[in-house]
């Protein structure tokens, strides 16, 4: 079985198990650049928050999978990902780290660590469990 790199809330159960290179998106400009590059479908998108509302265009343009580092499945992004049937794992944490997201008490170090570990890695999302979504290594 492939190595589990990270785990989080699975927003909805799905048999879809997209693979792609993780791309960390930190600002609206990153999303615009990605859409303009025509390579949206090659990437699993990593963003900091469930309230990262700038991701909406990427979802409507056919993003294949999303990982967030904070936020709940009931949030706006969770609702959108179910509408678009885009597999989505929220508040993911690295299985190899003790750092966890805590509302209002999470410093930038937590997000930097995850972004550094996942950005650029080839992964597969497993969203078949009704609670836990898994980010698997696919190198």
């Amino acid at each position: 079985m492939a190595e589990v790199l990270a785990e989080g809330y699975n927003v909805f159960d799905t048999g879809k198990s997209p693979t792609g290179t993780v791309k960390y998106l930190s600002a609206p400009a990153d999303v615009i650049e990605l859409i303009q590059s025509g390579r949206l479908g090659e990437h699993i998108l990593l963003v900091q928050g469930g309230t990262t509302t700038f991701l909406a265009p990427a979802l409507s343009m056919g993003a294949i999978g999303v990982i967030t580092m904070s936020g709940a499945p009931e949030s706006h992004l969770g609702i959108l990902s179910r509408e678009f049937q885009t597999p989505c794992i929220m508040t993911a944490h690295l299985t190899g780290s003790d750092s966890r997201y805590v509302v209002g008490a999470t410093g930038p170090g937590h997000f930097d660590e995850i972004a550094k570990a996942l950005d650029g890695r080839k992964v597969r999302l497993d969203c078949s469990d009704h609670e836990v979504g898994r980010v698997l290594a696919d190198d």
Partner: peptide, 19 residues
């Protein structure tokens, strides 16, 4: 509202959320 919207998308069947 957010809870209600999720209830529109998913129903609770025996403690498990399904579409």
């Amino acid at each position: 509202f957010l809870t209600t919207m999720s209830a529109w998308q998913q129903v609770d069947v025996g403690g498990r959320k399904v579409a």
